[in-house]
Design a protein around this nucleic acid. Sequence first.
DNA 1: TCATAATTTGATCGATTAGATCAAATTATG
DNA 2: CATAATTTGATCTAATCGATCAAATTATGA
Lengths: 241, 241
Amino acid sequence: MQSKGELRRTKMLEHIKQSGKATVSELMDITESSIATVRRDLEALEQENYIIRTIGGAVYDEGNSGSRSNAAELAFADKRSVSKEGKERIAAAAAAMVEEGDVICLTGGTTTFLIAKALKAHQNITVVTNAVNIAAELFDAEGVQVVVSGGVMRHKSYELIGPLAESVIEKLNITKMFLGVDGVSKEHGFTTHSELEARIAQLFIARSSQVYAVYDQTKLHKSALFTIIPYDGVTGVITDL
Amino acid sequence: MQSKGELRRTKMLEHIKQSGKATVSELMDITESSIATVRRDLEALEQENYIIRTIGGAVYDEGNSGSRSNAAELAFADKRSVSKEGKERIAAAAAAMVEEGDVICLTGGTTTFLIAKALKAHQNITVVTNAVNIAAELFDAEGVQVVVSGGVMRHKSYELIGPLAESVIEKLNITKMFLGVDGVSKEHGFTTHSELEARIAQLFIARSSQVYAVYDQTKLHKSALFTIIPYDGVTGVITDL
DNA sequence: TCATAATTTGATCGATTAGATCAAATTATG
DNA sequence: CATAATTTGATCTAATCGATCAAATTATGA
């Protein structure tokens, strides 16, 4: 069944879709609710990529129905209503562990991408990554030196792999690594679907003083094909509840 | 001729179009102007239906490519589409030169970015680049293998530079290179503002069988500080008019 | 070339909007 | 029906926006 809140958000979305846009006060009238509720609903709808919030309201986001031109977001466009809040809390927690002078390593993935966003305001740190979308996201972060491993890009994952990447990684010294994974289990440890990505991750791990696995609850008690590192091989984990 | 303000707005629009969105502070950095000017420019661009202003910035408005309304807008729209058409014609011409099996090199820049877009439909080619935005753009081009030089990213230009990049480039063999430049003159050859980018470009050139300089007319008869290669050092040039 | 007018820019102000917090109200659950 | 969890709305603070005006820049014509 559809809850009261969902009903209200559906109503809002219908209106925004029909008119192309809507103001906050319009939506307050239509739904007969307070400004705070409308704002919360708009925030939720924006999170799920249905709308784009504007200054006094919102517009309908057409780009998301078919193909989106913005490459950086395309990978995540389909993941509507995936538990983003959890991931953002994880990202915030990871970012809070980063200190001035740190050399951070971020492998590819949605969670690590959010960590990168959370690190944009940091000063005097270095971020090493093999994911081009993470690098692109940090292009205007003045306080963050961005180092990219070279390599061949895996289609639709943004991750650089192969011997070129490996030869670069060997030269780096990393203080803290945040490892994104596809599966977590006591038995198989931290796992991923791609053998080549597993290999790159292992090389990064070998160059890192501390390694923290980051994952949300949807990954727990699952195993992907390739083990990156055993369960007790990491310095710690960062996850939600 | 294009006024200073128009130039700035074009620059903003290109950035917003490439990234899909932009924050006000990002645009302040890029254009090196005050928050008031950025807001005025965004207001103008929104009036002309190029963008939609959001809370701290703007997103590109895809919906409106077709119809525009009043005459004042048309003047600006025409200018833009002319200069842009020029770059797109250059990009199309470059893409037409690419054959199956080629290993293409693209340095950073707006024109080379457009070449990358034009290459997305190609089959069985390799694109080597030191620009992370070009790599990100090709993330879903199935027929294109993407190789990224590693290195340290220059803020606000997406280009990877430094010893790491150099050590990777040394290992590559490129059939055709498309060289984006900041200035072209008989006397100083092909030039760029950044010494480090010039150096990277020279290394790519050393590994390329053919080198084509790509530039639009705004670059002609100008010289930037650092010469990449003399005027007669390239295989050919691709330009408009 | 120079003086003047027109335009553009950037700083500062108040106004508006957004975000965070918390108690009250509502809804779900056993 | 009692309790816990969630949602809602009010209040406050912070961020962003829009308007104004003086300074700087650019265009214009003698």
